[in-house]
């Protein structure tokens, strides 16, 4: 049997969210704090999933909108159909990474930050600001960012110099291995 693997299908299968139920009322985009900064507003994202075209799917996975989404959950809390858009966004981000379609701009800032964050946890079990920022600066090549903020934070005791790692590091390492985050 010929099975069409559209994004819409994969979303339904993996997240249980049925995008077709969206009737485009636009409440999600009205409430979204970043709708104005996105290349596709949340309701447009839902519509793009609905059209089930390969080209549109690809455009969506390449969009910046899916990375700008803050997961603030305003959209789902106001959606009359209770469509879990944040869950869809999570899935789209992971698909975008899997297929190597990351948005160019997000690939310079938002994505490396998330990656640095997870790397920190992988190594220490906790997030540790100095290590995180250093790692992010290397990844994003934004060496001078927040250069004036750091001393202020240090002065106020907000930046511990040494990481406080989890004792059972092996357990954390295993977790990353088992969840395919190597």
């Amino acid at each position: 049997m010929h099975q069409i693997k559209t994004l819409s299908n994969r979303i339904r299968k993996n997240t249980g969210v049925d995008s077709i139920r969206c009737y485009q009322c636009g409440k999600c985009s009205a409430g979204c704090p970043l709708a104005g900064d996105m290349d596709f507003t949340p309701n447009t994202v839902m519509r793009m999933i609905q059209v089930e075209e390969k080209e549109t799917d690809k455009k969506l996975l390449q969009s910046e909108a899916i990375w700008l989404c803050l997961s603030c959950e305003m959209c789902i809390s106001r959606c009359p159909m209770e469509i879990d858009i944040p869950k869809v966004m999570d899935f789209l981000r992971q698909e975008s990474l899997k297929e190597g379609l990351q948005n160019k701009s997000a690939n310079h800032n938002i994505i490396p930050f998330h990656q640095s964050f997870l790397d920190m946890i992988r190594f220490t079990g906790r997030s540790y600001e100095i290590g995180l920022i250093a790692d992010y600066k290397l990844r994003s090549k934004k060496i001078l960012q927040d250069i004036t903020l750091a001393p202020q934070m240090l002065m106020h005791g907000k930046l511990p110099i040494f990481p406080k790692a989890v004792k059972n590091r092996k357990n954390i390492k295993e977790i990353f291995k088992k969840t395919n985050m190597l």
Partner: peptide, 12 residues
Amino acid sequence: NCCGATAAHNLN
């Protein structure tokens, strides 16, 4: 350990 915050549910 860390709860994973935004980064974890965005990436995995």
